[in-house]
Amino acid sequence: MLLVHCPVCGAEGDETDFHGGGQAHVRRPATHDPVNVSDEAQRDYLFIRHNAKGLHFERWRCDRGCGKWFHAARDTVTMEFKAYYGITELPPRELMEQATGEWAGYFKDKLK
């Protein structure tokens, strides 16, 4: 039973007070250019997700609290929440640097 903190309203609660929204930073291709969305881009958007062992980045909603969405960096092995950040933000820099595997690839050009 994870203990989750909402960075928007400060509420702290059992994970049942929240709604887990899956992987963070998934890009919706149609938002940017609805006419030129390749099958691969749409496929990645719909189905392809990172499967991180360790540091992972997720979306959460403060369901039973302020109702706002936010991001969390969480270790999928120890379940520890490393950081919470805004829904339109990227993770803290040091966490982007610590990311490995697929996430490292994703954050590479964002760290430049």
Partner: peptide, 13 residues
Amino acid sequence: AAWLEEWLQTEWT
């Protein structure tokens, strides 16, 4: 209702 909020808060902000 949650679906509408999700799109407003996470995609078309």
